[in-house]
Amino acid sequence: MAIDVHGHVTSPTLFERFPMPPSLADIDGMVEKKAEAGIDTTIVGSPVGAGTMVRVPDLDNYRQPLDQLAAFHEWVAEQVRARPGRLRAYAYTDPHGGDGILDAAARLLEQEEFVGLIVNSSINGEFLDTERAGDFFAMAAEHRVPVMLHPPAEPAGSAGLRDPRLVEHVARPGDVATGVAAIIFAGWLEKYPELRIIAPTAGGGLALLVQKLEIAHRMPQRMGPAGAEPPLTAERPPSASLGQVYVDTATPSPAALGAAVRVFGAGNVLFGTDTPPMNAPAQNALRILDQLGLSPEDRERILSGNAADLFGIQAPVQTGAGS
């Protein structure tokens, strides 16, 4: 049995407005295919709220009317209620969006359907390492819910990439690694020990950069670009914050996943597929995990135990041939 912490769905209304992968609309098909693979529960959400990850001219995902976001989240809640035990959800919010959108997200967390928050690792090229994100982190810590730090539609620096394939498969994981590092260096995890951050795609390569982060932390702080808001600074070394960072298994690379397990520990790894919209069979994620030579106890923790504890949800009933 398994809990998939990384899935996405999109409402029919948004399909009428934006180009999107068809798999995002086939919720029953997703649930059925995952059950056949032994994946019993999926935590779903949208990293763009009522927007789209596909580049659309003149579309700003961070300028969404509150009523539009509310309608989207109500639709998500309906999907969860219609599939008890199979789906739970993340509430989307914009950490820089102000009191209105943060208050709306906080109210969603009072509903049983929503068990975490999903936000972007950077917002219009800006990471979450300044006071602008302070109210968001205070809210997340108060509610003690995990925060999925998902890459945005347009990662920092991606405007210089001409090939959209590089944006999706290189820039977005890189944005996750940089975004987590920025949060650690800003001291948000130090200030709020209740915070738990989920870094998808096996942390975006962060496992290979921990020693570099330690070196960077020991260096004298330097000024950033002229006119930029000065970054906040953590007192403790980055390694002291890693226990509050979880990574998921949504990577096609056994090497990357193996490094993540070694660095973060099996207790901080969550099973995730990024399906939908990724079109690889769900069984592939299980096969990659099986290549790591994990003990039965660690494998079970990654498949379901860690997520059940982190999200405070009951481990799913065993179903499907792949359980």
Rank of each mutant, 00 (worst) to 15 (best):
H8Q: 12
H8I: 07
H8W: 08
V9K: 01
S11M: 09
T13K: 14
L14V: 07
F15V: 04
F15K: 03
R17V: 10
F18S: 10
P19E: 05
P19C: 01
P21C: 08
P22I: 07
S23E: 09
S23H: 03
L24Q: 10
A25P: 04
A25C: 02
I27C: 03
G29V: 05
M30P: 00
M30A: 11
V31D: 04
E32R: 15
K34Q: 14
K34H: 11
K34G: 11
K34R: 13
A35H: 10
A35M: 05
E36K: 14
G38K: 04
G38A: 04
I39D: 04
I43R: 10
I43A: 06
V44P: 02
S46P: 11
P47G: 00
G49E: 05
A50K: 02
G51Y: 00
M53V: 09
V54E: 11
V54K: 09
R55H: 09
R55N: 04
V56D: 06
V56Y: 08
P57I: 08
L59I: 05
L59W: 12
L59V: 09
L59G: 00
L59A: 08
L59N: 05
D60P: 00
D60E: 12
Y62R: 08
R63S: 13
A71K: 15
E74P: 00
E74N: 11
E74S: 11
W75C: 04
V76A: 03
V76S: 03
V76G: 01
A77W: 05
Q79E: 15
V80H: 07
R81N: 11
R81L: 09
A82L: 09
P84T: 12
A89H: 07
A89R: 13
D94T: 10
D94W: 08
D94N: 15
P95L: 12
G97N: 06
G98C: 08
G98A: 06
D99V: 13
G100D: 15
I101T: 15
D103H: 07
A104G: 07
A105D: 03
R107M: 08
L109T: 02
Q111R: 15
F114D: 04
F114K: 03
G116C: 11
G116Y: 14
